[in-house]
Amino acid sequence: MSVTNASAGTNVHEIADGVYRINTPVDIVPGGFSFNQYLIVDEQPLLFHTGPRKMFPLVREAVASIMPASQLRFIALSHFEADECGSLNEWLAAAPHAVPLCSQVAAMVSVNDFADRPAHAMADGAELSLGKRSVKWLDAPHLPHGWETGFLMDTHTLTMFCGDLFTQGGTGADVLTSDDILEHSEAFRKPMDYFSHSTNTRQLIEHLAAEAPWTLACMHGNAWSGDGARLLRALGERLVGS
């Protein structure tokens, strides 16, 4: 582990080849919570999620411990929310060649107005080469929330950047676990259910599971390694039945 800010506890771990989790623990809910961003280091480096605006100095410090922040080319977001893209414009200023990366809906309804540079808007199933790897965009409207929601799949490492799916309480201290996170995430969800429970949840889950991810890069809590398709389908059963 590399702690990049001792005061805040921000830390960096490599969870897959060239994929780094940046984790900052916070105490905004009982039992603790965490914000994770994910950095893909390649010829065209990509940061998935920015963290809240006020966390920008911590995240930039963490990125700089791995590579020059100015070399980022894509600042990606799952959906338009403060902890997804609160510091988007700060990142665009720090990385002069970077552009936002998001769904076509996100670009249309929010990002192209909010951001200081136009977004690279991706259609469902579209792929983008970062160098030795490609990332694939997967539309997932309203899963868990937000019409514009989508996720990224790194086809090189089989890592799915799954946003708010499998949100866990606590500080995310285990980093990358193969232990069960479904029960933990469901226990966190139920008191303040933040899922939209759309009518096509089962189809959306299957759309993600078909990618057969091996690592799930969760935005809150530990990342997870194992049969991602199985875990996603197990989540789908819970959501359809709730």
Rank of each mutant, 00 (worst) to 15 (best):
S2M: 15
S7Y: 14
T10I: 04
V12S: 01
V12M: 09
A16Y: 05
V19P: 09
Y20N: 01
N23A: 05
V26W: 13
I28G: 12
I28P: 03
V29T: 09
F33I: 00
S34R: 12
Y38R: 04
L39D: 11
L39I: 03
V41L: 10
Q44C: 08
T50W: 06
T50K: 11
G51W: 09
G51E: 11
M55P: 02
P57N: 02
P57A: 11
L58H: 09
V59I: 15
E61W: 02
A62V: 03
A62W: 00
A62F: 00
V63N: 06
Q71N: 13
F74H: 13
F74Q: 08
S78F: 13
S78K: 03
H79R: 15
C85W: 10
N89C: 08
N89S: 03
L92R: 09
L92D: 05
A93R: 14
A93Q: 15
A94P: 03
A94R: 04
H97N: 10
V99C: 09
P100I: 08
P100R: 02
V105E: 15
A107T: 00
M108N: 14
V109Y: 09
N112Q: 08
D113V: 12
D116A: 14
P118Q: 14
P118L: 12
A119S: 09
A123M: 09
A123R: 15
D124C: 06
K132H: 14
K136S: 02
K136P: 00
W137T: 10
D139V: 10
P141M: 07
H145T: 13
F151V: 13
H156C: 14
H156N: 06
L158V: 12
M160S: 11
G163L: 09
G163N: 05
F166P: 00
Q168R: 08
T171A: 15
T171F: 15
T171G: 11
D174L: 11
E183G: 14
E183Y: 05
H184E: 07
H184N: 13
P191A: 06
M192H: 14
S196T: 13
S198G: 14
S198P: 08
T201R: 06
Q203G: 04
L204W: 02
L204T: 15
L204P: 00
I205R: 08
A210V: 10
E211P: 02
A212V: 10
A212E: 13
A212W: 00
L216D: 00
L216I: 07
M219A: 12
M219G: 15
H220R: 11
W224V: 02
S225F: 13
R230W: 08
R233L: 03
G236N: 00
R238C: 04
V240L: 05
S242F: 11
